[in-house]
Amino acid sequence: MALTHPATVSPVHPADATAPGPLAASAAIICLNEGACIGKCLQSLSGFAEIIVVDSGSTDGTLAIVDEFAGRGFPIRRIDQPWLGYARQKQLALDQATQPWVFSIDADEWLDDDLRASLPRLMAADDAISGWKVRRSPTLYGQSRPVSRLTRPEHILRLVRRGRARFDSALIIHEGLVADEGETPIARQGLLRHERSLPLNEQMKKEIVYARLKAEQRLKQGRKPSKLKLMFSPPIYFLRIFFWNRFFLSGWAGFIHAATGAMYSLMTEAIHRQLYYGRTKQ
C-alpha cells in the first residue's frame, strides 16, 4: 500500500546504513499514544535489521520514546500517517518492509527471550513455509507476572515472508495476516507477550469501541442479528476463556479477563441488533 498524503517518513538513522542487524527481518508496528508500553516492545526487537513504526498522531510521549530508541542505534524508520483503519494501517506498515521476513507486532506486545532465540531457526525454514503462527499470552491487569504457561495461548500469524501475506482491507476489526499460499505452522518455542496494562474502566471503553466496529463489519457483510447468539454467545465466550483456555489458573484476574470477554461478546450482539433494526426502520 502506498503512503497517503500527508504521511511523512523520518530519515533512516545513520546506524542503519552501515550493517544490518543479525536478523534479516523487519518489524512492523502501528501506534497511537502507546507511551506506556512501546519501549518494552522496541527493546524486544533488538537485533532486527529494520523496525518500521507507523504513528497516527500520538501526543503522549510515544514519539519521544521512539526517537530515543533511534538515537540509541535501533534501526527505526518512523512514518507519520493519519489513521486509515486497522487493516489498512497495518498493511501500510507491512508494505514498507525491505527485509526477507517481517514480524507484525502491536505496540503493547513484546517477544520473550525464547521466541527471540528461535527466530533464526524459523527464518531458515523451507520455502514451502510462508510464515509462522506465534503463541501469544497476556499479562492481566493487576498482576505483575505473566499468566501461567499452563493457560492456552492464542496462535496468531505474525512472522511472514515479505510479499506472501497480507491484511484483508475489507475487515475493520479483528484484522489478521492471511498467507496467500504455503504453510503457516505454529512456532512452539517462546511466547509473544501481550501487556493488558489499562485499568478496567479504560479497557471496557476499548471493548465497546471494538464491539461497535465488529457490529458494523457484520452489517457490511450483510449479516442479520441472531437471538440465539445474543443469548448464548456471552456465556459460551466466558466458559471458553475461563475453562477451555484455563484462565481459572489466574484466579480472580482470570475471572475478570473472561468476564470482560463475555461483556464484549454481549455488546457486539446487542449493538449489531440495535444498528440493524435502527437501519431497517429508516
Rank of each mutant, 00 (worst) to 15 (best):
residue 2 A to D: 15
residue 7 A to L: 04
residue 12 V to P: 08
residue 13 H to C: 02
residue 15 A to D: 06
residue 18 T to C: 03
residue 19 A to N: 13
residue 20 P to G: 15
residue 22 P to E: 10
residue 23 L to Q: 01
residue 25 A to N: 02
residue 29 I to W: 10
residue 35 G to D: 09
residue 36 A to N: 03
residue 36 A to I: 01
residue 38 I to L: 08
residue 39 G to Y: 05
residue 49 A to N: 05
residue 51 I to L: 05
residue 54 V to N: 08
residue 55 D to I: 01
residue 60 D to R: 00
residue 60 D to P: 02
residue 63 L to I: 15
residue 64 A to D: 13
residue 72 R to W: 14
residue 72 R to M: 11
residue 73 G to T: 04
residue 73 G to P: 05
residue 74 F to T: 07
residue 75 P to H: 04
residue 76 I to K: 01
residue 76 I to W: 09
residue 77 R to T: 13
residue 86 Y to P: 11
residue 87 A to G: 03
residue 88 R to G: 07
residue 93 A to W: 11
residue 98 T to E: 14
residue 98 T to V: 12
residue 102 V to P: 03
residue 102 V to Q: 03
residue 104 S to G: 01
residue 116 R to M: 04
residue 116 R to T: 07
residue 118 S to E: 13
residue 118 S to V: 06
residue 119 L to H: 07
residue 119 L to R: 05
residue 127 D to H: 14
residue 131 G to T: 07
residue 136 R to Y: 04
residue 137 S to W: 06
residue 141 Y to W: 09
residue 141 Y to Q: 05
residue 145 R to L: 11
residue 150 L to Q: 14
residue 153 P to M: 10
residue 154 E to R: 05
residue 158 R to I: 00
residue 159 L to A: 01
residue 159 L to V: 12
residue 159 L to Y: 11
residue 167 F to M: 03
residue 169 S to I: 15
residue 170 A to E: 13
residue 170 A to T: 14
residue 170 A to P: 03
residue 174 H to V: 09
residue 177 L to E: 07
residue 187 A to R: 08
residue 191 L to A: 08
residue 193 R to K: 08
residue 194 H to S: 07
residue 195 E to I: 09
residue 196 R to T: 08
residue 213 L to V: 02
residue 214 K to V: 01
residue 214 K to R: 13
residue 215 A to E: 04
residue 216 E to C: 06
residue 218 R to G: 02
residue 219 L to N: 02
residue 220 K to Y: 06
residue 220 K to M: 14
residue 221 Q to E: 13
residue 227 K to T: 10
residue 232 F to T: 13
residue 245 N to K: 15
residue 249 L to H: 11
residue 253 A to N: 11
residue 254 G to D: 01
residue 256 I to M: 14
residue 257 H to V: 00
residue 258 A to P: 08
residue 259 A to W: 12
residue 265 S to F: 06
residue 267 M to L: 08
residue 267 M to T: 06
residue 275 L to C: 08
residue 275 L to P: 04
residue 276 Y to L: 07
residue 277 Y to S: 01
residue 279 R to F: 09
